[in-house]
């Protein structure tokens, strides 16, 4: 006889009718929370852990939310109008989001990104028909920021730059959508919100909303433990151009995570939870488990910014089975 957990999925329990929508843009947001159970073994039974699956946005990442809000605000303010081209620097996901949104709303999109972003991202953006200018990989995302500024200065009237690093609408998108969704989805029981910092839009916006609803909610950021890291999408603040929207004083804590620990967690999530995510999700999960182990009770929510399909050609998956099979996966939690 199968156990109840299995039976629940083997026997159909009615169906949920998918909603009909007029545009792909209507599918942005309202992502589900996945309860993390198997890899949370050993923590107090009164501690629950949830991950918000942002990979289910139509552009495949959390960046759809900020990109849409920044473009909408640009149109509303008149800064983005017919004849303008959307331009921004990005290491990938925002670029995909802007390329998708630009197609739907009828604006050409130009993106500046370092050549060392994953091949999948380049191909997706290419498939949306956006123009890409590559910056020096040795200069990282800061190099892309600088090159984008230069292109903009040469022809300022041609472009609308959402400027995800400085545009308050980036965080506002999460204040208006991600934060309220999480609060509602946990019936207001959330005690800890944990998210990685790239532009910091997610943690700033959603964190602000959650604190307004309940000042006791702890807002904790996750960042790479070193300037040289392999956590695509995350920024090591101490050595980077600090985003204008980043306000460290609004955070309760910041947890550094090593690339190795984050990668190991990505493997564990794929093997034990059946969810294939990107490395920034691995970092977020690693930090979340660190916090969970110290708690007697609580409801922890973290964000999985995207799924793993965009990283299959990267070093993340090179030889991973060997590392798994010899049992040398190390966890410092």
């Amino acid at each position: 006889m199968s156990n109840p957990t299995t039976a629940r999925w083997v026997v159909a329990e009615g169906s949920r009718e998918p909603k009909n929508v007029e545009s792909v843009l209507d599918l942005i947001g309202e992502t589900p929370l996945l309860e993390i159970r198997r890899i949370a073994q050993g923590i107090s039974p009164a501690v629950r852990i949830f991950a918000k699956l942002e990979g289910l946005n139509p552009g495949g990442s959390v960046k759809d939310r900020a990109a849409l809000k920044m473009v909408q605000e640009g149109i509303k303010s008149g800064k983005l109008r017919e004849g303008k081209t959307i331009i921004d620097s990005t290491s990938g996901n925002t670029g995909i989001a802007l390329a998708m949104i630009g197609r739907i709303l009828g604006y050409p999109v130009e993106l500046v990104m370092p050549t060392n972003v994953s091949a999948e991202r380049k191909r997706i953006i290419h498939a949306y028909g956006a123009k890409v200018t590559f910056s020096d990989p040795l200069e990282g995302s800061d190099g892309a920021i600088r090159l984008c500024r230069k292109i903009l200065e040469e022809d300022p009237d041609k472009y609308f730059k959402p400027d995800q690093y400085s545009n308050p609408m980036n965080a506002q998108a999460h204040y208006e959508t991600t934060g309220p969704e999480i609060y509602r989805q946990t019936d207001g029981e959330i005690t800890h919100f944990i998210a990685g910092i790239g532009t910091s839009g997610t943690i700033m916006g959603a964190g602000r909303y959650l604190k307004e609803r309940n000042p006791k909610i702890r807002v904790i950021a996750v960042e790479p433990d070193d300037a040289l890291h392999g956590l695509e999408g995350l920024k090591h603040m101490a050595t980077s151009i600090v985003p204008g929207i980043y306000h460290e004083e609004e955070l309760d804590a910041k947890i550094p995570v090593s690339t190795e620990d984050a990668y190991a967690m990505v493997y564990r999530l794929s093997q034990d939870e059946g969810v294939l995510v990107g490395q920034s999700s691995g970092a977020a999960m690693h930090a979340t488990l660190q916090i969970a182990r110290k708690l007697r009770s609580g409801t922890l929510v973290t964000v999985f910014p995207d799924f793993g399909d965009k990283y299959l050609t990267t070093n993340l998956w090179t030889g991973w089975r060997d590392r798994m099979s010899v049992g040398n996966l190390k966890f410092s939690i």
Binding site: K63, T90, S91, G92, N93, T94, M113, P114, N116, V117, S118, P137, L138, G140, S141, D142, A144, G198, T199, P224, L228, H229, G230, L231, E232, G233, L234, K235, H236, S240, Q279, T314, N315
Partner: peptide
Amino acid sequence: ISIVPAIAGGS
């Protein structure tokens, strides 16, 4: 020789 992080970082 170039030493390049495998990722771009900081989206």
